[in-house]
Nucleic acid binder design. Structure first.
Lengths: 345, 345
DNA sequence: TTGTACGCGTTATCAA
DNA sequence: TTGATAACGCGTACAA
């Protein structure tokens, strides 16, 4: 194994010099720089993680994790849990993680929380870049301060960020289309439904991928409400139920953003013979019970554990160990049915 | 954070003594032992991994990884690849991994390979406990020598082993039943097919889980060849094809152990209208192409990467860091369709 | 510009 | 039975 010490011996310089070269720190003669660099490259130097971690403890890295924490956001509850676990693990390496819990999705509630985060002078931040003015302002400020940020669950263009951890929503829609093709045997009428979330463009991307895949691969499947009437308001599913009633033989329903999932029960009441197969997103206890009862047929997960843990790991690796992350880490679009959901919730 | 040094200070002894106590090494006065132990417990001492890893390099741990490597075993090719990657990673910690590649599944070929492994005097071994005399003998010998072993892909009862990494085949069969219920809309005729593998009881367990779940949850689905005629011989699919021909309207086919997958093409030739939905196991390039062509509808994966990497990690953690593993680590039964298979192969 | 020395936490070895 | 010390690889503060 190639160590700094070994390189120093071969190059005939001190360990300090080699360290300066490898970490691109100033104060090295150009000639020695090249000599050392060459040897290191040739021997294939890779810093030893154990040593790095041990040394990194002195840095006392402070990270922030901003996430919503409301009874209805079951997905983010899982994310939060995973982040807590990772935070505990990182303690050993001298890292402290500050959590900022969003209790309500309004600028009024979020703004003071983010002000707090600003003042805490963090070394790195993980957050969902919601399309809200308070969040946008915060992101811009942190960018100006050069504080590294990792986005999770949602990406944002035209903004400097270290990395993104989350799913590809367009592909998620395509997977939904594939599932619809399975349960319909590639033909028949189906419908769409979603709640509207102005803070996130995710459902639009899912919709796009879904329609694209269905049109291209399964032309015999007809979406009865593809251009209108698929968005329901919180608690009021009348327009969706009307569609279900109007169409005699609906084979399946893709619920993109189910809200609190009660729409599933409403649809089932209209569908005594259990003809309509419901496909939806994410995995949680409420869904699990609906699956057990045969109300939901399949669901598409997006690894909340990874979305909680990886951003913190990325920030630590970058700040503590100098490891550049990839531009994005896409979570797997896992398919869950009644039989393989047990261990997930 | 609680360190050995801190405990030593509080207890008024040296670090060496604390180390002896924490690692249950002999040569400590009973009284000091209890005093130190108590303090460590009270403060909740957790060994620092970075420190341990740094120190563990001196042990020069030697691990063995025994796996089959033939053109037809696509699943184990993925396992092997993952193990190689993990071995590379472990090099940093002073671990060398010796690979023993089984080129043919016969005692004649395997016996000398395992003899080699015996002589290499390994500190720990990862292998599939095949039901073959050469393997059984080897396992017993290693057990007598108290060499820790981790089994992957297949577990074995009545044998001391450190841990098992692989799927639950019974549950795998249940997931297959769930998929069959999806593609059939819970009714109609389906058929079974599998190649026979005497070295592994896996397909029997899958079969059991499949039938159990189908009988209990989906009584309207009929397995036309549930008691006979579902095992095909290598390259000869006549009995299965006869079943397909005989039954006019087969909705689906569950191929448990597909062999080289060519059976899928044969079935498709008989099924011009693409009525029969094929469900099978594992994920690889051959399958992917069949999925793209619509020949296979869905497949159930069992995380070959995890089966390759985790056994080595477990052995290192145990031998190098003294971390006791769980009794088993079940891999996820992931469902793959055309749309979410891209990144997997 | 370069070298030296210490500390991080754990383990092993040698001395007492 | 115990203590002291060196070593692992890295980062950095300080000295030259």
């Amino acid at each position: 194994m190639v160590t700094i010490k070994k390189i120093a011996e071969i190059a005939g310089v001190s360990r300090g010099t080699v360290d300066r070269v490898l970490n691109n720190r100033p104060g090295v003669n150009a000639e020695t720089y090249h000599k050392v660099k060459e040897i290191a490259d040739k021997l294939g130097y890779e810093p030893n993680m154990a040593g790095q971690m041990l040394a990194a403890r002195k840095k006392k890295i402070r990270l922030g994790f901003i996430v919503c924490d409301t009874p209805v956001d079951l997905f983010f509850a899982d994310v939060y849990r995973a982040a807590c676990k990772k935070a505990e693990e990182l303690k050993t390496y001298g890292v402290t993680v500050h959590f900022y819990l969003i209790k309500e999705l309004s600028d009024k509630v979020i703004a003071p929380l983010l002000r707090e985060a600003e003042e805490d002078d963090l070394d790195g931040i993980a957050l969902v870049p919601l399309k809200m003015s308070s969040v946008q302002t915060f992101v811009n400020k942190m960018n100006a301060r050069k504080v590294p940020m990792v986005f999770f669950n949602l990406d944002m263009e035209d903004v400097q960020r270290l990395s993104y951890v989350g799913c590809d929503y367009y592909d998620s829609g395509k997977v939904a289309a594939g599932l619809i093709s399975l349960v319909t045997r590639e033909k028949g009428k189906i419908a769409l439904a979603t709640s509207f979330d102005e803070q996130s463009p995710a459902f639009r991307q899912r919709l796009e991928g879904f329609i694209k895949e269905l049109d291209e691969e399964y032309p015999q499947i007809e979406i009865v409400n593809r251009d209108s009437n698929f968005v329901f308001q919180k608690g009021d599913y009348s327009n969706i139920l009307d569609v279900v009633k109007r169409e005699g033989h609906l084979e399946a329903l893709y619920i993109i953003n189910p809200g609190d999932y009660s729409i599933c029960e409403e649809v089932e009441k209209l569908d005594k013979e259990r003809r309509i197969k419901i496909i939806t997103n994410d995995v949680n206890n409420k869904q699990k019970s609906f699956m057990d009862r045969g109300i939901i047929s399949a669901t598409i997960g997006q690894q909340p554990e990874k979305q909680g843990a990886l951003p913190l790991q990325i920030l630590y690796d970058f700040i503590g160990l100098g490891i550049e992350p990839a531009n994005q880490y896409l979570t797997e679009l896992s398919i869950h049915i009644k039989q393989n959901i047990a261990g997930k919730v």
